[in-house]
Write a protein that binds this DNA or RNA. Structure first.
Length: 261
DNA sequence: CATAATGTTTAAGA
DNA sequence: GTCTTAAACATTAT
């Protein structure tokens, strides 16, 4: 699930714990911890969740001046807030019990996500080499980065050090809406194409968040509800094709995503 | 049973 | 140095 729009929804979920104090932390799967259990406990317990922020696919639950509990969701992570009495969902790796008896569940099936602590959020972001958030980056900076890239446009969008938040799924959608071939070189885009790409990136991400990152609610004109080899392109009725890019499987319509002029 | 899966990291090849 | 590919991670779903 978790690319920028999904994590934005998790941010809202975590917002339900705002101003609540963490009473205890239960670790069920050590695999997802980047810190020791004792460190996590002393960092968090008896602290108030002051605020939640997001940078790309990373979520920060602020508990001190610049300190935060950091969450990354890997491929199958989720965050759920539960009112007192609800029982732990399947695959909960970490449970944060609040003083008011509510609980925040960090869920991960494949355990590829990570929980970490940051003594200084900005420092942490710098150290992780995260580029600007895809929804915060200015058009000027985006165009500049495009020009300086030697990669294909899909790889460019998925490179977290350039822009953070976009992954395999949403890069497919953004390229589809921009009518661009995933392998087209980023620096070869005309300025018109580049601006269109920026606008579509914002539009796709905004729409996805508005629809709760739930593909079944996406407009039919989007690729994602049709994202499967052999399906019909919702725009030109062409046949959706599968390709391999940067080690991931991408989908696009070869008929209307050509990029040549 | 084999295969693919929304992510990141690391090593190796071009 | 840049970019791409493959493998590894760990597990579920098809």
């Amino acid at each position: 699930m978790p690319e920028l729009p999904d994590v934005e929804i998790f941010k809202k979920e975590a917002g339900k714990a705002k101003n609540a104090k963490v009473k205890s932390t239960e670790v069920k799967g050590t695999k997802v911890l980047n810190v020791s259990q004792s460190e996590l406990k002393s960092f968090l317990e008896d602290k108030k969740i002051e605020d939640i922020s997001r940078r790309g696919k990373h979520l920060f639950l602020k508990v001190g001046k610049n300190q935060a509990l950091v969450m990354h969701f890997g491929m199958t992570g989720e965050l759920q807030y539960a009112k007192n009495g609800d029982n732990a969902p399947d695959y909960a790796q970490c449970v944060f019990n609040m003083e008011n008896e509510d609980a925040l569940y960090y869920i991960s099936k494949r355990k590829l996500g990570r929980i970490d602590v940051a003594e200084d959020i900005d420092e942490y972001i710098k150290k992780s080499g995260l580029g600007p958030d895809a929804m915060q980056i200015s058009k000027e900076e985006f165009l500049e980065k495009l020009k300086n890239s030697n990669s294909g446009i899909k790889s460019f969008l998925m490179d977290q050090s350039l822009i953070s938040g976009i992954g395999n799924i949403y890069s497919d959608e953004i390229l589809f809406q921009s009518k661009l071939n995933p392998r087209f070189k980023a620096k070869k885009l005309s300025s018109q194409q580049a601006e269109e790409l920026y606008d579509q990136m914002m539009h796709v991400l905004e729409t996805a968040i508005e629809k709760q990152a739930d593909v079944s609610r996406f407009p039919d004109s989007f690729l994602l509800p049709h994202r499967k080899e052999g399906n019909k392109c919702p725009r030109c009725n062409g046949e959706i094709q599968k390709i391999s890019v940067s080690g991931r499987t991408g989908y696009y319509c070869p008929d209307c995503q050509q990029s040549n002029q």
